[in-house]
Amino acid sequence: MAIPIRVKVNGQVEALEVAPDESLLSMLRERLDLTGAKEGCNEGECGACVVLLDGKAVNACLVLAAEADGHEVTTIEGLGRPGALHPLQKAFLAHQAVQCGFCTPGMIMTALSLLLENPAPTEEEVRTAISGNLCRCTGYRQILDAVQAAAQEMRAGAQGRRP
């Protein structure tokens, strides 16, 4: 009983036949080989699978693939490329905010969702936003610094584009 869906993933329209109980996470990873989003718990408690759905962070394990029909998904693979990294990717590198890297894609996507909503968050707002993204390695300190640095660069970039 496959369900036909059309979903825009990282700017490209994908026409897929998904199973009714297939999660968005599984669809991205198994069908599209977009393995940046990770399965850490499969119950929305760790944040390793966070992607943007219509520009907002969601746990991809808590969304059915079928629910994404007609919507737009952005994953870490849709962010930047070497030489043209997204400010968040650059800042995570520059602030040594990455260790094992398993939480990193979800962490960056959550931070991106926050910064799209709130370009100048306080540290408390950043902490709150990423508190659903567990990281066992870093102690979060360098991640918090990286998000602030990226916010600053994104604000500067936005100003630079204004006439």
Binding site: G47, K56, G132
Partner: peptide, 9 residues
């Protein structure tokens, strides 16, 4: 309630 990504959903 819950986390930020969860509240979005």
């Amino acid at each position: 309630l819950g986390s930020y990504p969860l509240r979005n959903r």
